[in-house]
């Protein structure tokens, strides 16, 4: 925190209650995209706010559609399920893959190889 300029401190106190995620980190993630050259303050604020809404939306829909409602838990499989079943969350399927047992995977691998052998 020591490297924070006075300007940055100013900015955090203004946005204290509207957004809770650090804008500096969000800017870093945005800038890691190779095509992006610059981002104005409003765009950065909106992306940060949108990310918070997204986190809430993802958590709530996964919980509501998930299996852990009785036990009052939100688990990984609920999230993976949401990513697969909900259109708007489809872009997450790569980072939220459904977990399968190794023996099921080996079985499907074997089946695929057999199919290949058929040709």
């Amino acid at each position: 925190m020591s490297q924070n300029s006075a300007d940055k401190v100013d900015q955090t106190s203004t946005t204290k209650k509207t957004i809770s995620l650090p804008v500096s980190r969000v800017r870093l993630i945005m800038k890691s995209s190779p095509d992006v050259s610059s981002i104005n303050q409003d765009a950065l604020f909106l992306t940060t706010k949108a990310t918070e809404l997204f986190v809430q939306h993802l958590a709530l829909s996964s919980f509501n559609n998930g299996s852990g409602k009785e036990s009052n838990t939100l688990s990984y499989s609920d999230l993976a399920h949401t990513a697969e079943e909900t259109e708007t969350f489809h872009f997450l399927t790569d980072i939220l893959p459904k977990k399968i047992l190794a023996r099921d995977y080996l079985k499907s691998l074997e089946e695929m190889q057999e199919e290949d052998a058929d040709f």
């Binding site: 986190v55 993976a80 980072i95 939220l96």
Partner: peptide, 13 residues
């Protein structure tokens, strides 16, 4: 997982 999803969301947006 949600945290990672949030980072991916930022990149996608």
């Amino acid at each position: 997982a949600i945290s990672q999803a949030a980072s991916v969301f930022v990149l996608y947006a």
